[in-house]
């Protein structure tokens, strides 16, 4: 187990390193200078030089890369070009908002998806099962930000049930809760369909196993078999997928956060991209990639702990 853990964590570190190296390589391979791009065509050479210095672009390439990694390892992600605030402070300020949004989105998707998946299994092969199948695929393919805009129009502009923008008043839990409903709904919609399909597929697999046949032989009602005996086992792969899901949800939150003007990692990075705020973009991408790798690696280790077959495959 220890050997597997070391290998897995080592791989994550190597991947993170490669990712950042690739991003740096891109900056230097691609023609055009970030400082001139940021300032536009009418900037004076002095201004460009000043900005280049602030971005650290006046140093030799290798020393820039070394400097970036060395300070990132100690938690220093550099300073915002315009406001001069530390990048890490901004990330830590916005990240909880995005994390809450992502967790709520996956949470409601899990509840609704498991429910739909179970319904499909109970009525497998029937019309309802097929309709649920079509519904799941449709939910998966609809872009979250279109759902977000439609939901905003209907529930915030027309019906006025929920606030249209922001994350609620700080300290006021009710207003914060109201503000997160629509974004979490929009972000989770696609995952409802995905989880429903996943639950249905893994349940059908479980339904063929001996203990289910035994339960059926005892004459237990179908709904009880599905809910009490099959779901318990079938939910394990879904939980594993959720870990990966959180990483991908946090990154697609960009669009939903922008639509609802909700402070978060998405709005932070979009604003930074529009202003060419180079250190903020690099720092945020590094932070989010590291977070994603951390979750995926942790999930892998957990699964390996539960199921020794996974470790053996890796060793072989």
């Amino acid at each position: 187990m220890l050997r597997y853990a070391v290998k897995r964590i080592g791989l994550a570190v190597v991947i993170l390193f490669t990712v950042m190296l690739a991003m740096y390589a891109m900056v230097f391979l691609v023609p055009g200078d970030p400082a001139s791009l940021a300032l536009g065509p009418r900037a004076t050479p002095e201004l460009k030089a000043l900005l280049r210095e602030r971005m650290g672009l006046d140093q030799p390439v290798l020393s820039q890369i070394w400097h970036f990694f060395a300070s990132a390892a100690t938690g220093d992600l550099g300073y915002d070009v315009w406001s001069k605030r530390p990048v890490l402070d901004q990330i830590l300020e916005f990240f909880p908002n995005t994390l809450i949004l992502g967790a709520l989105a996956l949470g409601w998707a899990l509840v609704a998806g498991v429910a739909l998946g179970c319904l499909a299994v109970v009525w497998r092969g029937r019309m309802i099962d097929r309709l649920l199948g079509v519904l799941s695929v449709s939910l998966i393919s609809v872009p979250a930000f279109v759902v977000a805009i439609y939901a905003l129009l209907v529930f915030a502009v027309w019906l006025r049930w929920l606030p249209a923008i922001g994350a609620g008043t700080p300290g006021d839990l009710v207003s914060q809760a109201k503000a997160v409903i629509l974004p979490a709904f929009a972000l989770g919609v696609g995952w409802v369909g995905y989880i429903a399909r996943l639950v249905r597929a893994s349940m059908l697999e479980v339904m063929g196993e001996n203990h289910i046949r035994t339960a059926r032989a005892f004459g237990l009602p179908e709904s009880r078999i599905v809910l009490r005996y099959a779901l318990r086992i079938a939910i394990i792969p879904t939980i594993a997928i959720l870990a990966v899901g959180l990483g991908s949800v946090l990154s697609s939150a960009v669009f939903v956060e922008t639509v609802f003007g909700r402070p978060g990692i998405g709005t932070l990075i979009t604003g930074a991209v529009q202003k060419r705020n180079y250190p903020v973009v690099m720092g945020t991408v590094l932070f989010m990639t590291a977070f994603y790798l951390f979750i995926v690696t942790a999930a892998d280790l957990l699964i390996a702990r539960l199921d020794p077959r996974v470790r053996d495959v890796f060793r072989g």
């Binding site: 690739a22 891109m26 960009v254 705020n277 973009v281 991408v285 989010m288 990639t289």
Partner: peptide, 18 residues
């Protein structure tokens, strides 16, 4: 390495650069 990049964030990073 490439597939562990969050696609949208990576896209935003590339846009900042070029």
């Amino acid at each position: 390495s490439l597939s562990s990049l969050p696609m949208i964030l990576f896209a935003l990073a590339v846009i900042t650069v070029i």
